[in-house]
Structure formats: C-alpha cells, structure tokens
Simulated scan of single mutants.
Amino acid sequence: MPATRAALVGALALAAAALTATFGGLVTLDTATREWLIGRRSPDLTAVMIALSTIGSSVVLVPLALGVAVWLGVGRHRREASLVVGTTLGAWLLGPLLKHAVERARPEDAHLVLVNSWAYPSGHSLTSTAVLGVLSVVVSIRLTARTARLATVAAGVILVVLVGISRIYLGVHWPTDVLAGWLIGAGWLAGCLLVYEALERRRLVGE
C-alpha cells in the first residue's frame, strides 16, 4: 500500500506538471468545452451551480474541516484530527501560491460570479478535492458496511466533480484550470495520507 500510494502521488504530480506545461496548447479544447457549458445556462441550473460553487469554496470547506477536526480531537482521535487540519490548511495555502506562480488570466467574459485572482489552478477544485477527500476517508473508516464506505467515497467524488463543473459553467475558469485543481488536490491528499500512514506504522512498531 505505501508503495502504491507513493506511486500515485508521483503520477499525479507528473500529470499536473505536464498539464501546466501544455495548457497553452489546449486553448481550442478549453474554449469549446467552456462555450458548450455556458450554452446550457438556465435560471434554475445557474442557481444550482452557484450553490455548488459556494459549497466548494474555502469559506465553507475550511471551517467545516476545522470543525470536524475539533470534534475528532474532543473524541481523542488527535492523529486523525491532525490529518484533517494538515490536509485542509495545506490545500488552502497551496492554491494561491500556485496561482501566483503561474499567473494565468481568467476567461474575460460571461462571468456569473465575482472573482479577483488568477485562474490556474482552480482553488475550488483543489480545495474541494483535498478537503472532501480527507473527510470522506475519516468518515468511511468509521463505517463497517462496505457499501456504506463506497457510497461515502462516491458521494465525495461526485460532489468534487460537480464543484469543478460549476466553476466552468459560471464562466470564471477554463476547463484545464479545473483539471489541474483536481490533479493537484488529489496529489496533495494522497501525499498527506501517505505521511499519516507512515507515522501510524511507526507508532504501532514503537508500541
């Protein structure tokens, strides 16, 4: 498992790096996908997409994760609380750092929500992938039924995908911004889980 997790972290990092190096050549695909989604706008769907975008924002996810961490800490699950805090705060900081490093401009038109930062990677996609991912892990390990664990993880994945789509639909991101956010968020999550599992193995050996 550790070797598999490490390989996954490396693969995600390489994929994100490759996308970062080549997104300039994907303008046609970016534009076509964005225009297709924007062409499907309707008042009801826009309301749903704004709600999804809000759910996937740091304003919602960071306090949610910290609240879960406090609950875990009170319940004497301090190591899991540290995992949630570390994964969340790392993702929250990583997004702005990468945005300033790449400095990709957002699409210029058809914005349905206000934005004031660089486009790449999508902070909503990155943060929701990492935070909802770690929360799904924390919840699923407390479930005994396999179907319940799979349903928890599936629900987290679906919500992450919908958050990313909402950012394109609302006109504030290119599809490759969202894809990069997913890749980087998944890589950060996998890395945090790798470290957590290594520390747990060391603790068990020490006991």
Rank of each mutant, 00 (worst) to 15 (best):
Tyr196Lys: 05
Thr31Arg: 12
Leu64Gly: 11
Cys192Lys: 03
Leu183Glu: 14
Val62Pro: 01
Leu126Gly: 11
Arg79Phe: 13
Ala105Lys: 15
Gly67Asn: 07
Val60Met: 01
Arg5Gln: 15
Val74Asp: 00
Gly25His: 13
Ala69Val: 01
Val153Glu: 02
Ala91Ile: 11
Ala32Asp: 10
Ile184Phe: 02
Leu37Val: 00
Gly187His: 12
Pro2Val: 11
Val74Cys: 01
Ala13Ile: 08
Ala91Glu: 09
Arg142Thr: 03
Ala145Asn: 02
Arg104Lys: 14
Leu45Met: 08
Thr33Lys: 08
Glu103Phe: 14
Val205Tyr: 05
Val138Tyr: 07
Ser117Leu: 01
Ile141Arg: 15
Leu170Gly: 00
Val172Met: 07
Ala51Pro: 01
Thr33His: 09
Tyr120Trp: 09
Lys99Ala: 08
Pro2Leu: 14
Gly56Arg: 04
Arg104Tyr: 07
Leu170Met: 07
Ala18Pro: 07
Leu170His: 00
Thr87Tyr: 00
Val195Leu: 13
Pro43Glu: 01
Ile38Gln: 03
His124Gly: 00
Leu19Ala: 11
Ala17Phe: 13
Ser128Gln: 09
Gly187Ser: 04
Ala105Pro: 00
Leu162Gln: 01
Leu97Asn: 03
Ala198His: 14
Thr4Val: 12
Cys192Ser: 10
Tyr120Asn: 04
Gly25Pro: 06
His77Gln: 10
Ala15Asp: 09
Ala119Pro: 04
Gly206Asp: 12
Ala105Asn: 14
His111Ala: 15
Arg202Tyr: 11
Leu150Trp: 12
Pro2Ile: 14
Ala51Glu: 02
Leu14Asn: 00
Leu132Asn: 14
Val153Gly: 07
Trp188Ser: 04
Gly191Tyr: 12
Gly187Tyr: 11
Leu135His: 05
Val161Asp: 05
Ala65Met: 05
Leu83Thr: 10
Ala180Ser: 09
Arg41Asp: 01
Ala17Tyr: 09
Ser166His: 10
Arg5Tyr: 15
